[in-house]
């Protein structure tokens, strides 16, 4: 027989085909959802399953949804100025729920001075206006893996 025994590409047995699942949420009271929607679409186009929870979410709602959906990461979009409260609060809730392995990241109107403080508290990465979408997609591809 011409072909060696074993695995051809067509027949590689289907096993553990995990997909990355990410929740994109907008906590707080601002209605700026363009950024969040653009990120959600870009991540979908990169093969991610994005759970979009919409506007006006409390940190509790976001973390509860993240638990039910068993996501690998949470991306927050905050243009209201309340990032110094919202990011740490969500980190705290994640720890309380023993979901510390969920990667928290985000973007929006966030002054450069605040970013190192947020990162120190455990936010993985913060993107500010003007960041090319591809940079964000690359970050997600690189950093966020489906859980074991």
């Amino acid at each position: 027989m011409a072909t060696a025994k074993g695995k051809s590409v067509a027949a590689t047995p289907k096993k553990a085909a995990r997909k990355v699942r990410i929740l994109v949420g907008k906590p707080g009271l601002d209605g700026h959802d363009r950024g969040a929607k653009i990120i959600a679409r870009a991540l979908r186009d990169a093969g991610v399953e994005v759970i979009y929870t919409g506007l006006h979410q409390t940190p509790e709602m976001i973390v509860s949804a993240a638990a039910q959906e068993d996501v690998d990461g949470i991306g927050l979009s905050i243009l209201s100025g309340a990032h110094n409260y919202l990011f740490p609060r969500i980190l705290q809730l994640l720890r309380e729920k023993k979901m510390g392995d969920v990667v928290l990241f985000g973007g929006g109107i966030i002054p450069d001075d605040d970013i190192p403080k947020l990162v120190k508290k455990g936010v993985d990465r913060v993107f500010t206006p003007g960041t090319p979408i591809q940079e964000i997609v690359d970050y997600v591809n690189e950093r966020i893996r489906p859980r074991k």
């Binding site: 186009d45 990169a46 093969g47 759970i51 979009y52 919409g54 409390t58 509790e60 949804a65």
Partner: peptide, 30 residues
């Protein structure tokens, strides 16, 4: 999406008022 294999699961947007209710469990699937 048949092109990327990704998806936007947006049904939750309309159901988030139940997000904190222990008696409701919501699962989004692609």
């Amino acid at each position: 999406s048949p092109f990327s294999g990704g998806a936007i699961l947006g049904d939750r947007i309309r159901m988030q008022q139940h997000a904190l209710d222990e008696g409701v469990f919501i699962k989004s699937l692609a």
